[in-house]
Design a protein around this nucleic acid. Structure first.
Length: 211
DNA sequence: GACCAGGCACATC
DNA sequence: GATGTGCATGGT
């Protein structure tokens, strides 16, 4: 299993090259993006983040001081804007209260504690939590998303109904626990997914992983 | 017009 | 514990 997973990584890297994730200028921007990108095209998330930046509001306290209505209107392009405004505020409240809005302070704590805390925030599930841990705080945790499960299933690594943890364990129990590897691997899977592993994609049959 | 996108919480059975 | 549903914009 280890060698197959390493082989897949190698092929993806050769095919697509380094992906330079996460596309953001600061750890806090990663956190915001992680919440906004839930079930949403990244291009729409960029528009939402640009709205925040244009108004010079990309800071934990400034965002938290906004009325929820105002926040929702700023992030409108990202879709689900009402629920995401709520989720973002839930996270900001936690981030400010427990870590004074400092990603550096947060990054000093251990992975499993942080993961528990993040999952305790209403609106942050496993993928959002792990994205924040890996891409904002440099913790060695493998991020699983819809593409990851779809690819693992289509290549026979897991059953169709397999859960998040099962997919995550597959990687984490068979690969070195390295931030750089996890960072690039997940990004490459998303890159592959966008092109070949959409739900009804005829190109799936020409997937570069199939030899 | 249909389908899809870097999920999650909640209701119901 | 499994399954279904609401949330919403914008690209292809």
């Amino acid at each position: 299993m280890t060698s197959r997973l390493n082989d897949i990584y190698r092929r993806l890297y050769v095919r697509f090259g380094p992906q330079k994730w996460w596309p953001a200028e600061s750890p806090f921007e990663v956190m915001v993006g992680a919440i906004l990108t839930q079930n949403t095209n990244w291009l729409n998330v960029e528009r939402a983040i640009n709205n925040i930046k244009k108004n010079k509001l990309l800071s934990p306290r400034r965002l938290y001081e906004l009325k929820q209505r105002r926040l929702a209107s700023l992030i409108k392009p990202a879709g689900y804007y009402n629920i995401k405004a709520k989720r973002l505020r839930n996270f900001l409240k936690f981030f400010i209260k427990d870590y004074q809005g400092s990603a550096l302070k947060m990054s000093r704590r251990g992975l499993s504690l942080l993961r528990q805390q993040l999952l305790g925030v209403n609106g942050i599930g496993p993928e959002t939590a792990d994205s924040i841990l890996l891409y904002a705080l440099n913790k060695p945790v493998f991020v699983v998303d819809a593409y990851t499960k779809r690819i693992l299933f289509r290549h026979g690594f897991i059953g169709e109904g397999a859960g998040y943890d099962q997919a995550q364990n597959l990687f984490m129990q068979n690969l070195e626990k390295r931030v750089k590897l996890y960072n690039e691997y997940h990004a490459l899977i998303v890159r592959l997914g966008k092109e070949f592993c959409r739900k009804n994609n005829p190109r799936c049959r020409t997937c570069p992983l199939k030899k």
